[in-house]
Design a protein around this nucleic acid. Structure first.
Lengths: 132, 132
DNA sequence: TATTGACATTAGAGCCACTCTCAGGTATAA
DNA sequence: TTATACCTGAGAGTGGCTCTAATGTCAATA
């Protein structure tokens, strides 16, 4: 069983965020010890991982909450949950493409600056000039 | 020359955001017509693209502003700008890896649900059970 | 035994980056 | 000349943290 701090370190999410998520009802199953301290099981960690996954792909907190509620409702919500995960994956794939495009642009500019520095040329990329 | 609306459509950023960015000093070079309406040149569009790029990789507005100010200062800031772009690219590459991991997890779960639906099995993924 | 330090808890204020609403200005078209 | 389709700025509202403050538990040390 892990405290908030340990979960925070294991999964690289701030304690603040974990408490905020807890307050938002993302972890209805996490137990407390006699001093009211949250104890996450290994299985709970997997849940946190899913929340991280959904959030990092830009699913808003309300929808994350809804997904969790569907899980708790059990088998009869499987199709709905399937669709949420599928749509989320599709969204993530789009983001991946977008990110690749941004990396290309950044690489282009990195290269551009490298050349400028090496060749000691003037910068032709400034408010008054064009990219290409 | 393009109005805010046209830029918004071309680059898929809301007019609100563009105005917000303008107010934040991200486009000090954009001209206005006699009615005070912003007119973006093709070159300005490239600037907006860079801002989109930096923002979408999570560079905060203050740092975006700083980068723009460095550009305006001209040649003597090239090395500093190079480092900003390089660090941003590295950050983006990390995000790419992270995103790929998330997509893997989503695919795993998608598959899991698909099987459940096809085989009409019970859901073993719920608060009380483990992922594997 | 008292206190120090490392942990935990909550409520709630503050912050960032939008996002939206509003009131108002201009230009063309019916 | 009124409708529409734009544009403008100011400023309120929102989401999702992020941080602070006040408080509590417990183990170790002076």
């Amino acid at each position: 069983m892990y405290t908030i701090k340990e979960v925070s370190e294991k999964l690289n999410v701030s304690e603040h965020t974990l408490r905020f998520w807890a307050k938002s009802g993302f972890f209805p199953f996490v137990k407390r010890d006699k001093n009211n301290i949250r104890l996450f099981s290994d299985n709970d960690l997997e849940w946190v991982r899913i929340v991280i996954c959904l959030r990092s792909v830009g699913i808003d907190n309300k929808s994350v909450k809804k997904y969790i509620e569907l899980c708790i409702l059990g088998d009869k919500t499987i199709k709905e949950r399937y669709l949420i995960i599928k749509n989320t994956k599709d969204k993530a794939l789009k983001q991946l493409k977008e990110l690749q495009k941004q990396i290309e642009l950044l690489s282009y500019k990195e290269n551009f600056y490298e050349k400028l520095i090496n060749e000691n040329l003037k910068d032709t990329w400034n408010p008054m000039n064009s990219l290409k």
